[in-house]
Amino acid sequence: MTPLAGRGVGIGWRPEISGFVAELPGLRFVEVVAESLPHSGEPPEALARLLAAGVAVVPHGVKLSLGGAEPVDPHRVEHLAQAARAVNAPLVSEHIAYVRAGGVEAGHLLPLPRSREAVDAVVANVARTTAELDVPLALEPIAALFEWPDDELTEAEFLTEILERTDALLLLDIANVYANALNRGEDPMDLLNRLPLERMAYVHVAGGRIHGGRYHDTHTDPVPGEVLELLGELCARQRPPAILLERDGHYPPAASLRAELDALSAATGYPVITAAPVT
């Protein structure tokens, strides 16, 4: 049984929208930025209330740098494992990306060259991480505006090999799939048709916008209709066990967020979470 089965539509918990999230009557799961959880292990009070109400909390790491050639920092791994224990998480997630090298922080997720050496680096770092975790790890492919010049593997080959060699689950970000395909002039279905979709633990959806002729996965804009359509196409092939809306700033009025959550329900067929569940 996949860890988030039956959890349906969720939302990325952020302090700025904790009041909104607390009042979603049908909510069954949230994600929290793992690095934002305190080292002491005590989750913030608002999250503790969600946990008490039976909402699953998934720590989502953004700074582990699993794709770095350098070994992951054991302290960061320990914090992620501790965060998972503190919220009794069914799983944790991180990115197929690197965020620092040689002591320089990028401040964001950077793409990897799609090379065998990079696959090896990710596999080694995932092994170092899962050795400390009590729960499964899901890996999220990122959106990037640029690619490395000398890729050896297609994106599908690169991701599939990492998943096969690590036993990790897939956190598919459908907006990232859309963004990369648009910016590369590819058909997003080509990637969806080649990924091991049965490995999906859950799916991310986020907003973005076109700026300077490129699609930017901002998480601060509305979810485009094209992304919702792609989500529908994904569900037609393989419905993900759960789906989560990410919003990271420029928070809209509550009615707009509710409408986006309802749109995720409509696209996936999962119950609406903005109204009390029918019993």
């Binding site: 770095g68 050639a69 350098e70 690197y98 620092r100 090298a101 040689g102 320089v104 922080e105 990028a106 950077l110 060259p113 090379s115 050496e117 990079a118 680096a121």
Partner: peptide, 9 residues
């Protein structure tokens, strides 16, 4: 890979 990642960042 380590050197190339550092050069890029």
């Amino acid at each position: 890979l380590a050197r190339r990642q550092e050069e890029l960042v």
